[in-house]
């Protein structure tokens, strides 16, 4: 949930405004804002936690250098928020440590645990 003080907006030139969802909450942002800017405008800090220690981080350079702005955008994790323009309906979530590729846990099964029916060299002792 957005928790920190939001960045405020000065009077701007005319532009379209779009609604993005930050941790599920609708936020109006200006066309031309990046996803990282949207997160700051909404006051979501930290916007990611690190893979090593889990410490909190927020966008730092906004020019594609530091990779502190990694976010989960529309379901895809580890997206560089400051290089991603905000779009209508975009779902933005904070990035929690390492990325998850699938939902299943890696299996500890071994071929020896399998029913041997199809195994070609059945005679092999493992």
């Amino acid at each position: 949930m957005p928790n920190a003080l939001p960045f405020k907006r000065l009077p701007t030139n005319k532009a379209e405004w779009v609604t993005v969802y930050i941790e599920g909450q609708p936020v109006k942002v200006r066309q031309g804002d990046s996803a990282a800017a949207a997160v700051l405008a909404a006051g979501l800090q930290p916007s990611r936690t690190t893979v090593v220690s889990g410490s909190g981080r927020a966008p730092y350079c906004l020019m594609g250098v530091c990779f502190e702005c990694l976010l989960q955008i529309d379901g895809v994790e580890n997206v560089q928020g400051c290089m991603t323009p905000a779009r209508e309906g975009m779902q933005i979530m904070s990035q929690k440590q390492a990325r998850q590729l699938n939902n299943s846990k890696p299996s500890d099964l071994k071929p020896t645990d399998l029913k041997n029916s199809h195994i070609k060299n059945e005679d092999t002792a493992v």
Partner: peptide
Amino acid sequence: YPFKTLDLQQLREFIPEAGPEVAGATWGP
């Protein structure tokens, strides 16, 4: 010299992420 040869179906029983283009695998314990 222990090893096993697995077809795709067997492989998927413990690595479900293996893709449809995989023919199978050999296993060395």
